[in-house]
Design a protein around this nucleic acid. Structure first.
Length: 419
RNA sequence: GGAGGCGUGGCCGAGUGGUUUAAGGCGCACGCCUGGAAAGCGUGUUGGGGGCAACCCCUCGGAGGUUCGAAUCCUCUCGCCUCCGCCA
């Protein structure tokens, strides 16, 4: 979230920013509620001051104190009842006010995102009709979707044989890339509290929720380890000498959104997948450089896998509420009819928006606590990487070529072949 | 799962209803001292909100409650520790 005071002092900016992001927020209502809230708050504070003065007064008899104090307390109770609903409604709107937006981000919706770079690998040219990842992987005994449907329903999968090995290889390969840039590997809890889900910017309940909640608890299956990694420093004033904090979290990610349409077939949109996510907590002035660095790491990961991709600078209308600026990598997926781009990574600069919600601070040169900046980026998301890998490196005989950079992680294997 | 204990500022720690305006220490900042430093001495230092300011309000894990008045009493809740039970 943004600073309340900043919002009220920059109403035009906030309004145009909401418009730029193509969002609908009842901002006028928020401003009106805040005016009311602040007026009432002032009254409450005055009443408090009066009753504190009485309680501390040593010259007044207890009977006198009791008489005057009781009256003031009743007034305070009344005012509190008045302010509560105003506060609640204002808070609800407050949580929907999005982060500011990078000036250079293209304006518009999803289609307006700008292609700004491409990977080193060219799109593959096949002398045969390329297959999609489902057919390839099923033929090679790498995946079993029907058995998973029986066990857990649509949206789940078994990775088997070389498929299982490939997941582990990809995880370790991606992790090593992040570690080479100073990220600390982290195994995180796969569950997190409601409060943390909300703080990290994921709605744990309600119609828009894309997360799973554990019944009779305040726990949720995490949608990304970003949630738990930023949660590690929540409510802390981090020793400034410890910044930047650079973590690479490996976890299962759980998302309840339903797949639909041919583009989401197979293991493209699933309810559970494995992902290594980079998270950085840093000083404001360093955030931009870290963001560029994470994008570079993501590109290096996929260049190493010899997978063709494009880099998108995400348009304002397609930014999540927390993101100030965001880049996606989209891999070429030739198994889709005619081939098309599919999202494989995403890296966002959340500025201090997420840190304010989570109360992550550091001390500036003057010793004053300030909100840190947080950033996140996908090191490697297994299912998506796997789709891109098998579809781009498929051979005429249905085998899959393992790119050289991944072979050490696959026990030296050069091809995945049918048994 | 059962029994007991404990959560106080960046850190340690005193504090069982009213000068607590949260003692004391560490750390940190500034000053004195010094050729420079260390030590020593002095001053400042929880965090958040409001106000031009004086100053005011909130903040002792969290949420409620009792009271003229709560770190202190009550209820619920979260976390940590010890012992027992169960368990890969």
């Amino acid at each position: 979230m943004l600073d309340r005071r900043f919002i009220l002092e920059n109403q035009d900016l906030i309004r145009s920013n909401i418009a730029r992001r193509e969002m609908s927020v009842d901002f006028d209502r928020f401003v009106a509620l805040e005016d009311q809230r602040r007026a009432l708050q002032k009254k409450i504070e005055d009443v408090r001051a009066a009753s504190n003065a009485i309680a501390k007064n040593r010259d007044m008899s207890v009977d006198e104190k009791r008489a005057q104090g009781t009256a003031l307390r009743e007034e305070e109770t009344k005012l509190n009842a008045e302010i509560a609903p105003i506060e609640a409604e204002a808070q609800q709107i407050y949580l929907t006010i999005p982060n500011l937006t990078y000036e250079g981000s293209p304006k518009g919706g999803e289609d307006a995102s700008a292609e700004i770079d491409f990977g080193k690998a060219p799109k593959p040219e096949f002398a045969f009709q390329p297959k999609d990842h489902i057919e390839l992987m099923e033929n090679l005994g790498m995946v079993n979707l029907s058995a998973a449907a029986k066990v857990a329903g649509s949206g789940f999968y078994f990775l088997t044989g070389a498929g299982a090995l490939l997941e582990m290889a990809l995880v370790r390969y991606g992790l090593d890339m992040a570690m080479a840039e100073g990220f600390t590997p982290v195994i995180t809890p796969d569950l997190a509290r409601d409060s943390l889900m909300q703080g990290a910017g994921f709605v744990p309940r309600g119609n828009e929720s894309n997360t799973y909640r554990i019944e009779d608890t305040d726990l949720n299956l995490i949608a990304t380890s970003e949630i738990t990694l930023v949660g590690m420093t929540a409510d802390e004033i981090v020793d400034t000498s410890k910044l930047p904090i650079k973590l690479a979290g490996m976890s299962h990610c759980f998302r309840s959104e339903r797949a639909h349409g041919s583009l989401t077939r197979g293991i493209y949109r699933v309810h559970q997948f494995t992902k290594t996510e980079m998270v950085i907590v840093c000083l404001p002035e360093e955030a931009e450089a870290h963001h560029m660095k994470m994008r570079e790491i993501e590109q290096r990961v996929f260049d190493g896998l010899e997978i063709p991709y494009r880099v998108l600078e995400i348009a304002t209308g397609d930014l999540g509420a927390s993101a100030y600026r965001k880049f996606d990598l989209e891999a070429w997926m030739p198994g889709r009819s005619g081939g098309s781009w599919g999202e494989i990574t995403s890296t966002s600069n959340c500025t201090d928006f997420q840190a304010r919600r989570l109360n992550i601070r550091y001390r500036d040169a003057a010793g004053k606590p300030q909100f840190a900046y947080t950033l996140n980026g996908t090191a490697l998301s297994v299912c998506r990487a796997m789709i891109a890998l098998v579809e781009n490196h498929q051979q005429a005989d249905g085998s899959i070529r393992i790119p050289a950079a991944l072979r050490p992680y696959m026990g030296g294997m050069e091809f995945i072949r049918p048994k």
